[in-house]
């Protein structure tokens, strides 16, 4: 549930989340670090200031929903859910371990608080549209948030969903694009150009907003403004830095999926965190 904003505490917690996410992925031996770190401020703001939910009742009918369509960023979602009390923080240390409840990609089947299983890029915006349509049919007032990646928007299904959500006036759907300008093979403008990205969404009938995805005030202001839009779905382009807060990977293509084969690599990624005086929650 929405709480008070204490800038120093949010800064401290964001550093702790980045420290934890890096440790989780390093322990696992590999993982999608860059796209998880770029989402810390967005996801923390959603869970601490914007979304309505009840950790004791993860399927509460009137909760706000979040579909993490870029399912490979699951570690940041898992950290948020653990910190909000959906499951014990100890679970975080088991990312990708044999028999874990926390697989690399967001999984509704095992993780309390995950609203949709994702991992095959391009499908989450459709799933979120279905959840939003159900909310409309049932006369509900909750919001369905959906986080997509900028590289993910190469997938044509997003644009099918874009037409559908606008056609059906799904103003209870707020999409956020983690627009970090990078995808696996390089910068998005070199792999497959998205520009004019904002105009594309506008042309599909969406309200488009843009924000600095690492600025607490901008993120909160934009997310809450998006919930007020009537008659059309909203796409928020969150301008972010892939690998934010970890100098070993910040804004580098190789940040997408890091390999951590040994203790030296582990130390390299941990030492590269911008903030060091953090405590792991497990």
């Amino acid at each position: 549930m929405a709480g008070e904003f204490d800038r120093a505490e949010f800064d401290r917690l964001a550093a702790e989340w980045r420290y934890t996410i890096t440790d989780m992925i390093c322990r696992a031996g590999s993982g999608h670090l860059g796209g998880a770190l770029s989402l810390v401020e967005v996801v923390m703001t959603l869970y601490k200031r914007v979304m309505r939910f009840d950790p004791a009742n993860p399927k509460w009918a009137d909760r706000d929903r979040l579909v993490l369509s870029k399912g490979h960023a699951a570690p940041v979602l898992y950290v948020a859910l653990a910190y909000e009390g959906f499951f014990p923080k100890d679970w975080l240390a088991t990312l990708n371990a044999d028999g874990t409840k926390l697989p690399s990609h967001a999984d509704e089947r095992f993780v309390p608080g995950v609203d949709m299983t994702t991992g095959s890029l391009g499908q989450g915006l459709s799933c979120a549209s279905g959840m939003a349509l159900a909310g409309k049919l049932d006369g509900k007032s909750h919001t369905v948030f959906c986080i997509v990646g900028d590289g993910e928007c190469n997938e044509g299904q997003n644009w099918e969903a874009a037409m559908f959500a606008a056609h059906n006036q799904l103003d209870n759907l707020v999409a956020i694009c983690d627009d970090n300008k990078l995808q696996i093979d390089g910068f998005t403008d070199q792999v497959l150009s998205l520009e004019p990205f904002a105009d594309k969404w506008r042309a599909f009938g969406w309200e488009v907003m843009e924000m600095d995805g690492h600025d607490w005030d901008a993120v909160h202001r934009t997310l809450t403004a998006a919930q007020q839009v009537k008659g059309r779905p909203v796409m928020i382009l969150a301008h972010t830095i892939k690998g934010k807060g970890n100098r070993a990977i910040e804004n580098r293509p190789e940040s997408h999926n890091i390999k951590v084969p040994d203790a030296a690599a582990y130390q390299k990624y941990m030492d590269a965190l911008a903030v060091q005086d953090c405590t792991l929650p497990y």
């Binding site: 949709m116 499908q123 799933c127 959840m131």
Partner: peptide
């Protein structure tokens, strides 16, 4: 493709 994934979202809501 959109129909099938949207259906999944609808089904998730009952």
């Amino acid at each position: 493709a959109n129909m099938i994934s949207t259906a999944a979202g609808l089904a998730a809501e009952g």
